[in-house]
Amino acid sequence: MRTAAIELVVNGTRRAIASEGEASLLSVLRDEIGLTGAKYGCGEGQCGACTVLIDGVPRRSCITKVWSVAGKAITTIEGIERDGALHPLQEAFLVEDALQCGYCTSGMIVSGVGLLKTNPHPSDAEILEFMEGNICRCGTYPRILAAIRRAAAGNGGVR
C-alpha cells in the first residue's frame, strides 16, 4: 500500500507528504505539516489526545498510518475554528472552564465535534459512551460533559 508520494487533505488544503507511508498520521501532522494541536498522549489509541476527524469521524491519529488516509478529508483542531470564529463547542469549553492543563482539550473538542455531527442532541449516556476513549488526567470530565451539553443545547453544535 505504500506509495512514493502521498497526498493528504488537511483542513481543506491538499498537501504532498514527504514522510514514510508507515509513519503515523499524528507525527506527519505535527512534525511535517506543523499542526501541533493534536497531541501525543500514549501512541496506542488509548487516550484520545491525538484525535482528528477522518471524513468527519473521530480517529486516533497516533495509530493511523499516513498512507491509509491519503486523499481523505482530515480535520484537526486547527480546522475546527473557522474564519476566526470559534466552534460552539470551543466556546462552551471556555464558558464551562472545561480544562485545566489543556493537553487533552484538542482531542476532547475534536471528539465532541465528531459526536455532534452525527448526534446533535445526545443524551448524557450517549455523550459518556462516545467520549469514553478520551482521558483527562486533570479530572475535568464533569465540565467537559457540561460543555458538550451546552454546545448541543445551542442548535446541536451547529454554528
Binding site: 475554528e81 470551543q90 472552564d97
Partner: peptide, 23 residues
C-alpha cells in the same frame, strides 16, 4: 472573582505550544 483562564482561547484552538510541541 471567577476570571476566565488567561490565554484560554489558545488551548481550545490547539494554538498553545507545550514543550512537546516545540519546533
Amino acid at each position: 472573582k471567577s476570571i476566565a483562564k488567561v490565554e484560554g482561547r489558545d488551548f481550545v484552538t490547539g494554538a498553545h505550544r507545550y514543550a512537546s510541541d516545540m519546533v
